[in-house]
Amino acid sequence: MAVFISAVGFGVVTAAILAISAVGFTLQFSVTNVFNLAFGSVMTLSGFVAYWLNHAGLNIWVAMAAAAVSGGLISLAINEAIYTPFIRHGLNLFGMVIVTISVAVIFDHGLQAAVGPTFFSYTAPAGKAFRFADFVLTRQELIIVGIAVLLTILVQVALQYTRVGKAMRGLAINASLARACGVPTRGVIALAWFVSGVLAGVGGVALFLDISTFTATTGSEFLIVIIAAAVLGGIGSPRGAVLGALVVGIVTEVGAAYWNAELKDVLAFGVLIAVLLVRPQGLFSRLATERAIAR
């Protein structure tokens, strides 16, 4: 039982990191309809921004805030400079997936050429360990979980109650109707990319803190797990993404404790494939059904 509870503890931390990133990934997808495979590269790039600031002597949490802003700006810049022109050029959704993977490949390997194939890590103390029954979490892990709770609630509240949040939801359900109702679509889409980038930045730094060493391709490798969580929850639904993150996070860590640490991700993907067979639109399915993503 003790093993189980401590595994759940690790699972909560993994789920927190996943939730931050998966909400960013899925929110931007719901508004723009583009599957952004360069999301992991934005995580890595902003993670490296935090790394350089951190090694210049800045506190890691301040560096994380800076990474969040730079993540937002990078994400916005990629959309304005590459994605939007391609969409205007008449490329379909299908082609956009290839554009985003090209951007990911260029960014990851550009960064690799710049920093080399070595491993990096932040200088940040894990902090005092706190014990809750059989849960042992460090101060650092607690802060990450706290940030995740805060950010996901913030996004949810903003989507539910603010004007711009409603505009985003409107755009997600029916873009042309939203435009006809006077929603400034361009601005809202830009904001969605920015927010998604901010979440990628925070998620990236949190991930790199949690796994302690990272390379120029760590973000893109983790993107697969993020996609699994987002698809599991129902693509385009931030609430679903949080739920998907919790399932994936806890299943992987409990699986690692009882079965085989190397195969922990396989377990999560097994759940994903089972869900896809039975309910391909995911757990929260409204948007996925609306967009005819799955039937």
Partner: peptide
């Protein structure tokens, strides 16, 4: 049962 770009996403996961 999946849209084409969504298929791509799922296959990427399977490949990994």
């Amino acid at each position: 049962r999946l849209r084409s770009d969504y298929q791509a996403m799922v296959m990427l996961v399977i490949s990994v």
